[in-house]
């Protein structure tokens, strides 16, 4: 396993600064499976919740000088392969592609969505907004190995569709 990445935010805290940005920057720079060793002047309880949501467990130790060392270890299931599973929309990554099809005449939304999917890598998610449920798109998504989840908004006027790109064929 890769060695833990060390981040000491004590200087920032002592200067009255806010270390959250630095911590998130470090977290995002971690290699898959890599742990984060954090040094702080207090036990950073609020951070534990944030890190738990990102799939990290923690082990907090009080140092002799009264400062704290916290080891954030990625949970076992989040190691290695990405956690996004096609059959579970809750596990999908946040969408990075957006397509507003509300002004398009059918079947243009179908053409546009399929065209955009061709440029996406596996696991990437697209969010699109449509004027109606694209019932004829779904069989084609299935044949091409993409996964989708969708529903109407509260007013029933717009259909919200998330598509998770499948493996490139």
């Amino acid at each position: 396993m890769t060695e833990a990445f060390e981040l000491d935010v004590r200087p920032i805290l002592r200067n009255g600064g806010e270390p959250f940005g630095a911590i998130m920057g470090a977290v995002n720079a971690l290699a898959p499976g890599q742990s984060l060793k954090l040094f702080a002047t207090f036990r950073p309880d609020p951070l534990f919740t944030v890190m738990a949501a990102k799939g990290f467990g923690y082990e907090a130790t009080r140092l002799n000088d009264g400062d704290w060392e916290v080891m954030f270890v990625p949970n076992a299931q989040s190691e290695g392969a990405p956690t996004s599973r096609p059959e579970d929309p809750d596990s999908w990554a946040d969408p990075i592609h957006y397509l507003d099809c509300t002004e398009m005449d059918p079947p243009e939304p179908m053409v546009q969505i399929l065209a955009r999917l061709e440029s996406m890598s596996e696991g990437e998610v697209m969010f699109s907004l449509l004027g109606r449920e694209p019932v004829f798109l779904f069989p084609e998504l299935q044949v091409r190995g993409h996964a989708w989840a969708g529903d109407f908004d509260a007013e029933g006027t717009a259909y919200r569709l998330m598509v998770r790109a499948g493996p490139r064929s």
Binding site: P107, M110, V111, I113, L114, A115, R116, L117, E118, F136, P139, E140, V143
Partner: peptide
């Protein structure tokens, strides 16, 4: 007919 013939190609070539 359009769905049958061109849906498989949509997004890959101009249909």
């Amino acid at each position: 007919t359009w769905l049958e013939c061109f849906a498989p190609l949509m997004g890959r070539i101009t249909t």
